[in-house]
Amino acid sequence: MNSKDKIGKYIKLEISGKKMISGLLVDIGSDLWVVFNGNDYLYIPIIHIQNWQFLKHDEIAEISFNDEPTPIYNHNEEISLRKTLTAAKGIFTEIYVTSKQALHGYIISIMNNYFVFYSPIYKTMFISLHHLKWLIPYTSNQRPYGLSNSSLPVNPSGHTFARSFEVQIEKCVGDLIVFNIGENENVIGKVQGIKNNFVELISAKEDPVFVNMQHIKTVHMT
């Protein structure tokens, strides 16, 4: 079975972080799979698919299928992660990066190895492309947290962004930041500097903490 032969099959995937997704495989791209779970299209980078298997008949029967939303990409073109992110730009979207919670908002800019995301909760965020597990575009009548469009600025930052994630973090030297949505106290502090692929943070008690750049998934200012 080649990769395209799986399209139209019901599958179950394990995603990095021990997350399980079940649904209909509707498309496969160079670095991305698209699964319809009965309510939404999930755009899943292949790098985070740990394993997958076909669903059994009784498992398929457990999925409740509603009306399919309109996909955000052109079915006549081969999809990719970057094309999908570009198509999702400005659309209210759910993204999943850490093992704890999803983020809701919209994509502002797409850079070389990260993208800029606006969250009504965390405001402007920098998201590593390497750590993006999946994204789910909202349907047209949905708004995050029930907010009106007027509460969600089109270009909230007004800043220019570095081309790479590493350089963007370097621009944060001297700022109070939160990495990885504050999953523990060791990823919150003032950026003191970057050396040998480690970011030095100064904690609330003024202790230095060194965070491996490769494990930084999200960045936002306090």
Rank of each mutant, 00 (worst) to 15 (best):
E183M: 10
Y43A: 08
W52T: 05
A204Q: 13
L32T: 11
H220R: 04
L13H: 01
M221C: 04
E59N: 02
E206Y: 12
K217P: 03
I169W: 08
Q192A: 14
F198S: 06
L135V: 07
A204H: 12
A204D: 05
Y114R: 06
E206T: 11
S109F: 07
T124R: 09
A88K: 04
G182F: 08
D31W: 04
L132Q: 05
P208G: 02
E94L: 15
I188D: 01
A162W: 06
M1W: 13
I91T: 13
M111R: 15
F210L: 12
F210P: 01
R163M: 13
H131W: 14
L55C: 10
T139G: 08
K195Q: 15
V173H: 08
T222A: 13
F198Q: 13
V154N: 10
F165M: 08
E78D: 11
T84H: 02
D27R: 03
M111K: 15
I91V: 15
F92L: 00
F198I: 08
V154M: 09
F161I: 08
Y96C: 14
E94A: 15
I181Y: 12
I91G: 05
L24R: 09
G189T: 03
F198H: 14
I46E: 12
G158S: 09
S30Y: 04
E78H: 07
K18P: 01
E166G: 11
P137N: 05
K205T: 15
F179P: 02
N37M: 04
V187W: 05
E77R: 09
R163K: 14
N37L: 02
Q101W: 09
V209A: 10
A61Y: 11
H215Q: 08
S80D: 05
G8D: 00
D67M: 09
S3E: 13
F117C: 06
S151L: 11
P153S: 02
L55Q: 03
G174A: 07
T98F: 04
E170Y: 06
H57Q: 14
Y114F: 14
Q142D: 07
S150W: 15
K4P: 00
H104C: 06
I107E: 00
Y41G: 03
N51M: 09
L132A: 05
W33M: 03
K171I: 01
G23T: 00
I11L: 12
L132G: 03
D31Q: 03
Y73N: 05
G193H: 10
D175E: 14
T222I: 14
N66P: 01
S148G: 15
S128C: 04
L176I: 11
D31P: 08
E77Q: 14
Q101T: 15
P69C: 04
K195A: 11
F179T: 04
I202Q: 06
E94H: 11
F198M: 10
K12R: 12
M111S: 06
L132W: 07
D175T: 12
I21K: 08
E170P: 00
T160L: 12
